[in-house]
């Protein structure tokens, strides 16, 4: 009998994918090393260590791929079985939106909505608690940093903060 979550040479094998990504990165590092010049052994150039590290990466990635093919590995789907995969995805989306908003809006205007969203999205906190936390914590931290530690947080286009 074959375990459906442990596959060998299949496109759904997660180990295989990890190894392939490693191999691609290794190849890229070797190429960058060559482009930066290896130099000579008595005066190694900027690409010397990168080149050899890239080779090592390919070797390790290769051994991951080989063991993925010979011993098999869990499928990609099984890694996300029985978990609420939508939650991390939502948090990642919030963080991505936040990184786009941070510079134009400034720290206060971007972090208050971020906190509110996070409080409501990962198992909702009731509004009466979520709103005060989302407003007070960032403002409090902002005040402490600006007044006590003289650290200027990004203020954004509207100059708030």
């Amino acid at each position: 009998m074959r375990d459906q979550t442990n596959v060998k040479l299949r496109l759904s094998n997660s180990e295989l994918w990890g190894g392939l990504i490693g191999l691609a990165l290794g190849g890229f590092v070797i190429w960058s090393g060559l482009k930066l010049k290896l130099g000579t052994i008595n005066d190694p150039g900027s690409g010397y260590v990168l080149f050899y590290t890239g080779i090592l990466m390919c070797v390790f990635a290769g051994s991951i791929i080989i063991s993925a093919i010979t011993e098999g590995g869990p499928t990609l789907a099984s890694r996300w079985e029985n978990v609420r995969w939508s939650k991390p995805l939502l948090v990642i989306a919030c963080l991505a939106a936040f990184s786009f908003a941070l510079e134009p809006l400034g720290f206060l205007l971007s972090s208050i909505p971020l906190l509110l969203l996070l409080l409501r999205l990962i198992d909702p906190v009731r509004w009466t608690l979520a709103i005060p936390i989302a407003v007070l914590v960032p403002s409090g931290m902002w005040w402490v940093l600006k007044r006590l530690l003289l650290i200027q947080l990004p203020s954004g286009l509207f100059g708030i903060g």
């Binding site: 948090v91 963080l95 972090s111 971020l114 906190l115 996070l118 409080l119 990962i122 906190v125 608690l129 936390i133 914590v137 960032p138 931290m141």
Partner: peptide, 8 residues
């Protein structure tokens, strides 16, 4: 509550 605060 803790997770959003950790991120902040």
């Amino acid at each position: 509550i803790l997770f959003p605060l950790i991120i902040l």
